Amino acid sequence: MESKFSFFITLLVLQYLTVVCVSQDFDFFYFVQQWPGSYCDSDKNSCCYPTTGKPAADFGIHGLWPNYNDGSYPQNCDSSNPFDESKISDLISNMSTNWPTLACPSSSGETFWSHEWDKHGTCSESVFDQHGYFETALGLKQQTNLLQALQTAGINPGGRTQSLENIKDAIKQGTGHTPWIECNQDSSKNSQLYQVYLCVDNSGSNIIECPVFPKGGKCGSEIEFPPF
């Protein structure tokens, strides 16, 4: 009887450990920032300023996304822990500035942030609670400062065509790591700088070289950096 009981307890422990391992089963994060001028000057997106007003002409956070080394990713991992704005009340002002929404209709940003937490943040619960997830992303934006890196290299928004390699080199010089650049198209079908991906280790602590780059949104060798 004792042997059967011990076996049962062992089985429960193994099941628990399996659940914990699964919840931690991602390899790295993509930290994604977008240029608002390209979001708004797109042949696909309609653009509405948030209810807090027009955002600054700076890169804004899109998200912090758990990913696997094979390029796939987990999503919508825990429906029992939905976004709760009260848990990040002290971050709202910072998020309105650095993580603004440009989707229509105009809103405060809560719908955008809720989507990012529910789809991506819940898959990182082994590392972060809600507050930690958003706080970490805000810290990464300050750490990377993409616009400053580009401007230091003499690359400024304004619609001029820029070399893709020069943009990559400027961001690598500024952050210490190789970015992935995603482009979209303006209404005239010109390729333009849209999103910048950097990779972060699975603790959310350190920027790393990306184990794998995304496959979509490829750019030409010359791209536009539109004003906002």
Rank of each mutant, 00 (worst) to 15 (best):
S188K: 14
E182R: 15
C48Q: 03
G60L: 12
D118V: 04
I171C: 06
A153S: 14
E209D: 15
P66H: 09
Q34A: 15
S38W: 05
E135M: 05
T122E: 02
Q162H: 12
V32N: 12
Q15K: 13
V32Y: 09
T51V: 15
Q162G: 09
G121V: 08
V32P: 08
P74H: 03
D118C: 01
E2N: 09
Y68D: 09
C183W: 04
E125M: 08
F225C: 08
I181Y: 07
K141F: 01
K4I: 03
I171G: 03
I61M: 02
A149W: 03
H120G: 12
V127Y: 02
L64P: 13
T111M: 06
C210T: 07
Y73S: 00
N190C: 04
E110P: 00
N190Y: 05
P82G: 14
Q34L: 10
E110F: 01
F83E: 11
S80T: 13
D118I: 05
D90S: 15
V19Q: 01
T136K: 14
F128K: 01
S114T: 10
G71R: 06
N202F: 06
G154Y: 04
Q24R: 15
Q143K: 14
E2F: 10
I61F: 01
A57R: 06
E125T: 11
D129N: 15
Y68W: 12
L150S: 12
N98L: 07
G109P: 04
N81P: 04
F7G: 13
I167S: 03
P66T: 11
L146S: 14
G132L: 01
S191W: 08
Q15L: 15
I61C: 05
T52M: 02
A149F: 02
T111R: 14
Q33E: 15
G217Y: 03
Q162Y: 07
L11S: 09
C48H: 07
F225L: 10
M1W: 08
C123A: 09
R160L: 10
G158Q: 07
F128A: 03
C183I: 09
R160P: 00
Q130Y: 02
P179W: 01
S38A: 15
K44V: 06
L102T: 07
D41F: 01
S79F: 05
F134P: 10
A153T: 08
W180R: 08
T111L: 10
H62K: 11
N81L: 15
H115Q: 00
E222R: 14
K54I: 14
S126W: 02
Q173W: 00
P226H: 10
I223E: 00
S96A: 09
V127G: 07
Q24H: 13
E135Y: 06
N76G: 15
N94W: 08
N166G: 07
Q34N: 13
G216R: 12
N202M: 06
K141H: 08
S124N: 00
S203H: 12
L150T: 13
H131Q: 04
G176R: 00
R160G: 10
V196P: 02
W65I: 14
D118Y: 02
F29L: 01
Q142L: 06
A170H: 05
H131S: 05
T51W: 08
S3A: 11
H62R: 09
G220Q: 13
F83Q: 13
Y68A: 00
C47G: 03
